[in-house]
Simulated scan of single mutants.
Amino acid sequence: MKGSSFSAEVVEPYAEALMAVAQEHNLVDKFGEDVAALLDTLNESEELQQFLGNPIIKAEDKKAVLEQLSGEQIHPYMVNFLKILVDRRRILFLADICRQYQALLRELKQAVLAQVISTVELNDDQKQAVRQKVLSMTNAQDVDIETQIDADLLGGVIIKVGSQVVDASLRGQLRRIGVSLSRST
C-alpha cells in the first residue's frame, strides 16, 4: 500500500494539517525537531514499526507506548497528533507523514535536501563543504543534509539534490575513465 496514490492521499493532508497547527502556534521548528526524532526512533526500531502497524494491537496500547516514547521531548500537540493517527488507523503512515512534513518545512524555509552518500561518516568540516557546494548549485537559503554510508564507493561522495547528482566518488571516476577509454578504441 505504501507508495500508492492512496498513501499520498493520506500522507499529504495529515502533513499539511500538522504544518497548519505548527504555524498557528509558532511551533514549526519544534515540530521539525519532533518529526526528526520520531523518524530516527522508527528507523532504529523495526519492532516499533511492526507494533504500530499491527491491527490486532489495541489503540490504547499503541497510545501508551507512543506517550512513553515521547516523554518530555515531544511537544504535547505532537503527542495528540500521534493519538489521532492511532484513532484513525493511520499510524502506519507515520514515517511518510513525518517525511512529508519535513518536505513542507524545507519548502517554507526555502531549503533543499542534499542526500550525501560516502564511504565513511562525514565530519563537520566535510558537511559544511557539502553545504556550501549545494548552496552554490541551487538558489536555496539553507541545506538539510541526509547522510548514507556505502562502502562500495571506494572513496569520495555522491551528492543528490532533487534530480541533480554530483558523483565525486572514486567508483564514479573509475567508471568515467572506463567509458572514456572504451570510446577511444
Rank of each mutant, 00 (worst) to 15 (best):
L92A: 05
K109W: 00
L94E: 12
I84Q: 00
V112K: 08
E121S: 04
R106K: 05
L154H: 01
A140T: 09
L135M: 10
R90S: 08
D124P: 00
A151L: 03
D152V: 02
F81K: 01
D152H: 03
L153E: 00
K109E: 15
G155R: 04
M78P: 04
M137L: 12
D144M: 08
L154N: 01
A114K: 02
E146F: 13
K127Y: 11
I159Q: 11
Q173W: 10
V166D: 03
V112Y: 04
V157K: 03
I91N: 09
K133S: 08
A168M: 14
T138W: 01
N80L: 02
L122H: 07
L105Q: 04
V120P: 01
Q128G: 00
R171S: 03
T138Q: 03
F81M: 07
K83F: 09
E107K: 14
Q128I: 02
N139L: 00
V165P: 02
L153C: 06
D167Y: 01
A151N: 11
D87I: 10
V161A: 02
A103I: 07
L122V: 10
N80R: 11
V165N: 11
G162A: 11
L135I: 06
R88I: 06
I84A: 04
T119Q: 12
A103L: 10
V165K: 06
G172W: 15
Q173P: 11
R89F: 07
A95H: 12
L82G: 01
V134H: 02
L113T: 05
Q132D: 09
I117E: 13
R131M: 09
K127C: 08
M137H: 01
V120W: 10
I97V: 09
R171I: 14
E121C: 02
G155C: 06
Q110F: 13
D152K: 11
I97K: 08
L170V: 15
D125E: 07
V157H: 01
E107L: 09
Q115K: 14
A111Y: 14
D144C: 02
Y77T: 00
G156C: 09
V116F: 04
D96K: 13
I159H: 13
K127Q: 13
